[in-house]
Design a protein around this nucleic acid. Structure first.
Lengths: 327, 327
DNA sequence: TTGAAAGCGCTAACAA
DNA sequence: TTGTTAGCGCTTTCAA
C-alpha cells in the first residue's frame, strides 16, 4: 500500500480512502490511485484490515453435512450471494456433532468473521451478541429460547401436507420413517404427520414408526428391510427426508414391492434426488433460494448497522406431486 | 494476549511461545500460561497472526459446483481432514466459470490462505510459487503445462472400463453422452471409450455422440428425449458422469425403454446417485478419500517446509457393477 | 529461559 | 481534499 501511495504520488491514507470508497478525495486522485492499483495488481491484505477493524470480508457457515443435497444447495446459494456482495464463506462441516460444531464456531470467531449462518438447533446468542448471526433451517432445540434470528420452513405443515396426500391416495396403514438425533425438524415433521392422521381420525400405533439413528440412505434401506420381514406391509410411507425415501425405495424394490401401486411414498426437501429417482418422488418443497436470500439480507442489514429485530421466520412449504403418490 | 501475560506474570513473548509450542520456556511457566488461557477462554486473533506471519490457519478450496455429489464428498473429506490438522477451509464455488474462479483466487490470496486446493483445468503456477497448491481432480487444459502437483483419477482408463463393460454385455450400438465446457475430464473419458471401441474393432460414428452444454440432469434428459425421437435406439449408453446418467434414466423411462433389458447404461464417479437410482447404476469408481488425503498430505508437507516435487499423480479407478449393465 | 521492542499492512482520528 | 500518525494483536530478533 505504501508502494501504491508513492507511485500515485499520494499518502497511504488516501489510498485507503479510495479503496474503501469513502468519498473524501478528488476525482483526479481517485483515478490516479485506481490506475496504479490496477497496473500493479495490488490486492489489499485482509489480515491487516481484519486486525485493524476487527471484521473481515468473511462469513462463517456451519452446516451439518455438506454431502446432503438439501444443505449443499443451501450452501451454494449462500456462498454465491455472499460473494456477489464481496464476502467469502468459510464452510464448516459438523457431521451432526455438537462438539465439532462448538470447535468450528470458536475457530470462526478467532478468524474474525463478520457474520455467521448456523444450521443448527443449538443457540449461542449470549456468547456473541455483536456478531451478526442467523440461525437457518433448524429451530432451537430448547423451545424456550427466543433470541436471535431464525429462518426455517414450516416443517410441521410439511409433515402435515405429505401425510394428507397419502391419506387422499387412500392409504390406511401409514408407516412413518424419521431419524432421531439433534435435528429437531425430524420430530416436528413427525408431529405434522400425526396432526394429519388425527384430523382424519386415523389411529397410529407406535410400531408404525421407524426411528433411524441418523439420516442415511444405507441405514434407511437396512431398517426397512428388517421392518418388512417382521411386520405387516404398509400401504403408505411418510419419510422426513428425501435421503431416507431413497433408502426406502431401494428396500422396497428388493422386496418386489411397487411404488405407487403397492405402496405410496413421500419425501421431504424436494431436492434433486426426488425428481431423479424412479418413480419420481412426491416431496415437500422447501424454498431454498428464499431461505438463503433472507439469511443474506439479515446479515447484510446488520453489517450496515441497521438494527434488525430478533424473530422467527417460518417459510411456507408446498407439496410437489410426482408418481410416488399417484392414484 | 497482553492480559494473559499479566495474569500469568510473564510477557507477551512468552505467551506467544507457549501458544506456538516452540519449547523455549520452562515447564512451570508453560503450565501457568496454559491455565490462564483456559480460564479466560482466550482465543488468539487469527488476523494479527496472519498479518505478522503472512500465513493463516486457512486453506482455500475452489470447486466448480458444490451441488454435484462427487465434489461435495470431495470437499467434505478435505474440510474434515484439514480441520483435524488445525486448518479451516474457505470453500469457493465457481459454477464452472473461469472468470469467477479468478476472482475467487484473488480473494483467497488477499485473505492470506496458507494453501490452496483447486479443482480446475486452469493453472496458476507462475503467480504463486510460494503458496502450497494442489490441483485436484482435473488435469490441465493446456497439456503442455507440467508444473505443480496434480492428483486425479485415471479418467481415460475409467472411460475404457465402462465401455468395455458395455461391449462385454453384448452392446453393438453404443451412444456416448458427455458434456463439453472447461472440464477436460469429459473429453478424456470419451477418449477412453473410443480406445475400448477400437480395441474391439467397433465403429463409432459421430451421430452416436451427445455433447451437452453442461453437466445437469435436466439437460441430459432433454437431449436424450430429442435423440430418441430422431435417431435409432442404442443398445448401450456410456455417460461421463453419474449426473448425466440419471438424466438419461429419466428420459428412457418416459420412452418406455427398460434398463438393462433394452438398453445398458454406465455412469462415472460412483457417487451415491449411482446406488440410489433404480436400477442400480454401473459406474466408474473414483477413490475420493484417497484423492482428498493425498491433497492434504502434500499441502501439509509443504507447510512443514519439506520440499515436495511437482508431479502428476493418477489414481487407479475400478468399475462398480450394478444392475444397469447386467447380462 | 525470559523480556523489550520493532513492525507486519491497514484504518481512522486529528491536523492541516 | 489530503497527510501524519497511532495502534490493532501478534511473532521474532536481540539482548539479558
Amino acid at each position: 500500500m505504501q508502494e501504491i501511495a508513492e507511485l500515485a504520488g499520494t499518502s497511504v491514507a488516501t489510498v485507503s480512502r479510495v479503496i474503501n470508497r469513502n468519498g473524501r478525495y478528488s476525482k483526479e486522485t481517485e483515478a490516479r490511485v485506481l490506475k496504479v492499483i490496477r497496473d500493479n495488481r495490488y490486492v489489499p491484505n485482509e489480515s491487516a484490515k481484519g486486525l485493524r477493524t476487527t471484521r473481515t470480508q468473511t462469513i462463517g457457515v456451519v452446516v451439518p453435512d455438506i454431502t446432503n443435497p438439501h444443505f449443499s444447495s443451501l450452501v451454494n446459494k449462500i456462498e454465491t450471494g455472499m460473494f456477489e456482495r464481496g464476502y467469502s464463506c468459510i464452510i464448516c462441516n459438523t457431521n451432526e456433532s455438537e462438539q465439532l460444531e462448538i470447535k468450528h464456531i470458536q475457530s470462526l470467531r478467532a478468524q474474525n468473521v463478520s457474520g455467521m449462518v448456523l444450521i443448527s438447533c443449538l443457540r449461542y446468542h449470549a456468547e456473541f451478541r455483536n456478531l451478526p448471526t442467523v440461525y437457518l433451517d433448524r429451530p432451537a432445540k430448547d423451545t424456550a429460547i427466543n433470541e436471535g434470528i431464525m429462518i426455517c420452513s414450516d416443517n410441521d405443515q410439511g409433515g402435515y401436507l405429505a401425510t394428507k396426500e397419502l391419506l387422499a391416495a387412500g392409504c390406511k396403514k401409514i408407516l412413518v420413517v424419521k431419524a432421531h438425533g439433534d435435528d429437531i425438524n425430524q420430530t416436528i415433521r413427525f408431529q405434522g404427520a400425526m396432526r394429519a392422521l388425527e384430523e382424519e381420525k386415523v389411529r397410529f400405533s407406535k410400531d408404525m414408526l421407524l426411528d433411524l439413528d441418523h439420516v442415511s440412505i444405507k441405514q434407511a434401506e437396512q431398517e426397512m428391510d428388517a421392518f418388512l420381514k417382521k411386520k405387516k406391509i404398509p400401504d403408505g410411507i411418510m419419510t422426513t427426508t428425501d435421503t431416507i425415501a431413497v433408502g426406502i425405495y431401494l428396500s422396497l424394490r428388493k422386496a418386489g414391492l411397487r411404488v405407487p401401486k403397492d405402496i405410496r411414498l413421500t419425501g421431504f426437501d424436494d431436492c434433486y434426488l426426488a425428481e431423479s429417482c424412479g418413480p419420481g418422488l412426491t416431496s415437500v418443497h422447501q424454498d431454498v433460494s428464499q431461505m438463503a436470500s433472507m439469511a443474506i439480507d439479515f446479515i447484510m442489514r446488520r453489517l450496515k448497522g441497521d438494527a434488525v429485530e430478533d424473530g422467527r421466520y417460518y417459510l411456507p412449504v408446498t407439496l410437489t406431486r410426482r408418481e410416488s403418490t399417484a392414484y
